[in-house]
Design a protein around this nucleic acid. Structure first.
Length: 566
DNA sequence: CCTGTCAGGGTTAGCCAACA
DNA sequence: TGTTGGCTAACCCTGACAGG
């Protein structure tokens, strides 16, 4: 659960991908996080006569190209609307994160973290101004800007330049027809590619004080811009800093249960420092939030023992109980937990307390969380037999204000920490699209199916993404003949793949990593080709010397080209 | 190389106890 | 009675490993 990286979105690695018909058309392949994402069971997906796929859409062609080239044309553009979100088909709780990650047909009872750690995916929007950067940084190459920041890594640049797409035997004319328009655009694309490279370098070199211009940054802007007037007024009144996106939490039943009155945001054990919330806290706040976790355990054990003793002989314990009560009172005064003010969409204020619970491995917000639920119509009283069938997520945006309680104790010049909590039905949300981490979230109902899907998704991802070098910032254009719905899914996947590529690159485009990826991807692509009757036409950037009648639309666009031959 | 199985780990739901 | 703190079991995913 490494913090998402903010990709330089201006440049695109280009990949011409003729996707195999189905197997991957439904799974959420994509970013590295998505590799494991469950997808449609191969059995259902592979058949060419898949009922879910229109006959004429068997072959889809994907072209990854610089985002600025995506105007009009094949339906992609830099400002194209965020990929449509797949509607949650099941009544089960599926968070925003879960949504896109999980296939519609898979309503798992329990799912992995629904917390959307897009924090950094907003171009670090969530963290860019943070005092405490995430433990995992994107700067694999060391200090300063990430690789290709101030200047593109020469090796990468060379790699990109010598990339060529080579098409082997192609009996399908349709591809040629598709590629035709592509080739016609070659000159501008080359230029754009260079522009893109420069843009990537510039973007990387630029301190991320602003959200990146595209993708997640756009999403971030959307979130912030869509704050209600009341909320804005409230923030102004508090003299709050600009809200920054933290994460998205898909509300589970336990989160909306009024009897529990708490919101749990779990953090993977051992990776608490990767949790976006963790980095919101100053040192002082961290101490408060995590106050004496060990003591609590010890006291608990003691309590347990005492309980047992109580069970054994109640009479003797009475004095002890009194003592305990007194101690508890003292503990109450010292009760750990950070006072956190929450604001809802309407600007209403809720005083909550945030604590990190080692037992649950996550942050628990208590206090007026129940009030929030009631005011926002999210409350469920399980005792009354109510069921939580909605799929609602909440977005957390952090801000600070000196006018909040305990601002002085925060240890932060901007004051105490507060959260803007925006909720919405997942069906309305589009957040999943950009979530690089959502891949982790979706647990399929069937693990076996999952695996198969997983493998498919891997193939797809690898097929669409190739060398890590190519991952140097991307945008995706899809040229497809498939139906819109299908296209949307594909779009999502490619977007995720791109994100994954970006992430890989950000993690530090190490040679080993590249080599590993390259070999893996090539193998996966070949496998996919065999399985789906496609042709692995050429793996870009591998030797690159073979002849081919098709030149890459953009130099430096690394990819595995898989042509599905109908 | 592919597939199936197993073990480990993470997340969530449910429950209970203590306290105000 | 409602709130809060905490534990634990169940579920499910993921990775590793072995067999075909």
């Amino acid at each position: 659960m490494s913090p998402p990286q903010d990709p330089p979105c201006d440049v695109a690695a280009a990949a011409v991908v003729v996707s195999p018909p189905d197997p991957k058309s439904h799974h959420g392949g994509g970013g590295d996080e998505d590799v494991g994402r469950p997808a449609q069971p191969p059995s259902a997906a592979v058949p060419a006569n898949n009922p879910r796929r229109p006959v004429e859409t068997e072959t889809s062609y994907y072209v990854l190209m610089p985002v600025h080239e995506l105007d009009g044309g094949a339906g992609g553009s830099g400002d194209r609307p965020p990929p449509k979100k797949r509607p949650a088909t099941s009544g089960s709780c599926s968070g925003a994160v879960d949504d896109d990650s999980s296939p519609p047909s898979l309503p798992p009872k329990k799912r992995k973290v629904a917390v959307d750690y897009r924090v950094d995916s907003f171009g670090g929007s969530g963290s860019r101004n943070r005092e405490t950067p995430p433990a995992v940084t994107r700067h694999g190459g060391g200090g300063g800007a990430p690789a290709g920041s101030t200047a593109m890594d020469p090796a990468l640049a060379n790699e990109l330049r010598r990339r060529e797409i080579k098409f082997g035997k192609r009996k399908v004319t349709a591809e040629a027809a598709l590629t035709a328009p592509i080739t016609t655009k070659l000159p501008p694309r080359e230029k754009l590619m260079h522009d893109g490279i420069r843009a990537a370098a510039a973007a990387a070199a630029t301190p991320r004080l602003l959200p990146p211009p595209a993708m997640n940054g756009q999403l971030h802007n959307d979130i912030v811009d869509n704050l209600s007037a009341e909320l804005r007024e409230r923030l102004d009144a508090l003299g709050a800093t600009a809200p920054r996106y933290v994460c998205t939490k898909s509300l589970k039943r336990s989160d909306v249960d009024l009897n529990q009155n708490r919101l749990l945001i779990s953090c993977k054990q051992g990776e608490v420092f990767n949790c976006p919330i963790t980095h919101l806290f100053t040192g002082e706040e961290t101490i408060i939030v995590n106050k004496n976790p060990d003591e609590t355990k010890e006291t608990k054990k003691k309590k347990k023992k005492k309980r047992r003793k109580n069970n054994d002989d109640d009479e003797e314990e009475e004095p002890g109980l009194k003592v305990k009560k007194k101690k508890n009172k003292n503990e109450e005064k010292e009760r750990p937990g950070l006072k956190v003010t929450m604001l809802d969409h309407g600007g209403d204020t809720y005083a909550t307390t945030c604590r990190y619970l080692t037992s649950n491995g996550g942050y628990r917000f208590i206090g007026e969380w129940g009030k929030f639920l009631r005011n926002n119509g999210l409350a469920v009283c399980v005792n009354k037999g109510e069921e939580w069938t909605r799929s609602v997520h909440v977005k957390l945006l952090e801000f600070r204000s000196r006018r909040l309680p305990q601002a002085d104790k925060s240890g932060h010049p901007d004051g105490a920490l507060g959260f803007v909590v925006l909720h919405g039905d997942d069906s309305d949300s589009d957040d999943g699209e950009d979530d690089p981490c959502k891949g982790k979230a979706p647990p399929p109902a069937n693990a076996k199916k999952n695996k198969k899907k997983k493998s498919n998704s891997k193939e797809h991802v690898n097929a669409t993404s190739s060398s890590a070098a190519a991952s140097a910032s991307v945008a995706v254009e899809r040229v497809t003949r498939s139906v819109e719905q299908e296209a949307d899914d594909e779009d999502e996947r490619i977007q995720r793949a791109v994100n994954g590529m970006l992430k890989l690159h950000d993690e530090g485009s190490q040679g080993e990593q590249q080599a590993l990826l390259a070999s893996k991807e090539e193998a996966e692509a070949k496998r996919a080709a065999r399985r789906y009757g496609s042709q692995v036409i050429k793996k870009l950037g591998r030797g690159g010397g073979e002849s081919g009648h098709l030149k890459p639309r953009d130099e430096g666009m690394g990819s595995v080209v898989v042509a599905h031959v109908k």
